[in-house]
Simulated scan of single mutants.
Amino acid sequence: MDSHRRDLLGVDGPVVAAPMAGGPTTTGLAAAVGAVGAFAFLAAGYRTPEATADDIAVARAAGHPFGVNVFVPTPVPVTEAEFRRYAARIAAEGAPYGLDLAAAGRVEDDDHWAAKIDLLVHDPVPVVSFTFGLPPAGVVRDLRRAGSRVLVTVTDLAEATAAADLGVDGLVAQSAHAGGHFGTFTPDRPPPDRPLPELVGLVAGRTGLPVLAAGGVAGGPDIRSALAAGATGVLVGTLLLRADESGANRTHRDALADPRRDRTVVTRAFTGRPARALRNGFVDRHGALAPSGYPALHHLTRPLRTAAALAGDADRLHLWAGTGFRAARAAPAAGIIAELTRTL
């Protein structure tokens, strides 16, 4: 697998720093991971094209192979009536912070899709990965012609087959144990919960493409199992959230180490799209009745989540975490990577 990894990612190490949008992934984290021979993704999600360009320039200057992850605009519709009902339902959550969530406007956007693709075509990076769906065939063609290897995140065999038919260079097989948003193409019908090695073996065996494994990694044994199943590399995200170079906020970091936070749940309460997070009060109060609706619900709750993070209010914050969250530790990223690879 080493030659496949070198061809796809330009590194020999099997560990890949997952893209964590919304702040946790920083250029400092990417540089620290790259310096010890691992591969790092930058997260373009929720970043402006200008900020993404700046991140790319910094990562390029560090001199290590890296990639950029982009959200494919695959909106999950929500009716105005459903949106207004949910905004009214969660209104009391914003009151302590002076937020009038009940009157919030509905925002739908595509996360600057066209501008980000234009940037990546004209200022190519080694690897571009996509999440939430299939990019158009023309985008895959243009990026590959520009010199980038193109990957698509998939969560089941049907998605993997569709991505392979586009002519991509590899796949990211994400299990349901992953923290944060599921990359599923069908958020209203998430895929069955398969163990990561099983998903990797299925996807790699049917498509013949290099596969990066993602989801629920808690340590070296999980990495070994994924590699043994045929993975070319293994993504870790939650395990880096408490790293010194992570951009995760203090409230999130502390919650990951809080013994009272003893489980993760899958919820759409914060963004209208299924995501795995530490169970908290907001999920308990609203998870069962939250509608699907992305990115409308993401924009609705974002001011609340920002305020909660600043206030140390972990019960109103999206505490994204995979099932291996108990193994996340506060340490330099280089030490975390070294520990993960020590017995490989």
Rank of each mutant, 00 (worst) to 15 (best):
F132T: 06
D109S: 10
G67D: 07
A95E: 15
A158P: 08
F71I: 14
A163K: 00
L120Y: 07
E108R: 15
A158M: 03
P75N: 13
I117S: 10
F71V: 14
A104R: 12
P126G: 07
A176I: 00
E159C: 06
D142Y: 09
A95M: 09
A103N: 12
Q174E: 12
V168H: 06
D111Y: 12
T79D: 07
T155K: 00
A91I: 06
R85M: 05
V128E: 06
T74H: 15
V107W: 10
L134T: 02
G94M: 08
I117A: 11
G170Y: 03
D142K: 05
V154R: 01
T161R: 15
R84H: 08
A163I: 05
V128Q: 04
R84E: 09
A173C: 07
A164P: 08
R106T: 13
V70R: 03
H177G: 05
V121Q: 09
V76L: 02
D156R: 00
N69W: 05
L151P: 14
N69V: 03
F130R: 03
A81G: 01
V125Q: 05
P75R: 10
A160W: 04
L166F: 09
V78I: 15
L99H: 12
A81T: 15
G94R: 02
A81R: 14
D118Q: 10
A92C: 06
P73N: 10
R89N: 10
L166K: 07
D142T: 11
P75Y: 01
V127L: 00
A88G: 12
L143R: 10
H64N: 05
L99A: 11
G63R: 03
F83W: 14
T161D: 13
R149N: 12
L171E: 02
A62C: 04
G94P: 08
V70Y: 01
L157R: 01
A146R: 05
P73W: 09
A62R: 05
R106C: 14
A115E: 15
V139G: 00
P65D: 10
V152S: 07
R144M: 02
A146S: 13
A163S: 10
R144H: 12
E108K: 12
G94I: 03
P75I: 01
S175V: 07
A103S: 15
H177E: 15
G138Y: 04
F132N: 01
V172P: 06
D110Y: 01
R145N: 07
A104L: 10
L151V: 11
F132K: 03
V125M: 01
T153D: 04
F71D: 11
A158I: 04
A62W: 00
H177T: 14
F71E: 07
L134E: 04
T161C: 08
A162H: 06
P96H: 10
T79E: 02
L143Y: 11
D111H: 07
D110A: 09
A162D: 12
P136L: 02
F66W: 07
A91D: 15
H177Y: 13
Q174K: 07
P65I: 05
V78H: 03
G63Q: 08
R85A: 14
G105L: 02
G67M: 06
L101D: 06
A62I: 00
K116H: 06
V125Y: 00
D156H: 09
P65E: 06
V172S: 01
D142I: 04
D123V: 08
V107S: 13
T74S: 14
A164R: 14
A146P: 07
S148A: 13
P75V: 01
L143D: 08
V76Y: 04
V172K: 00
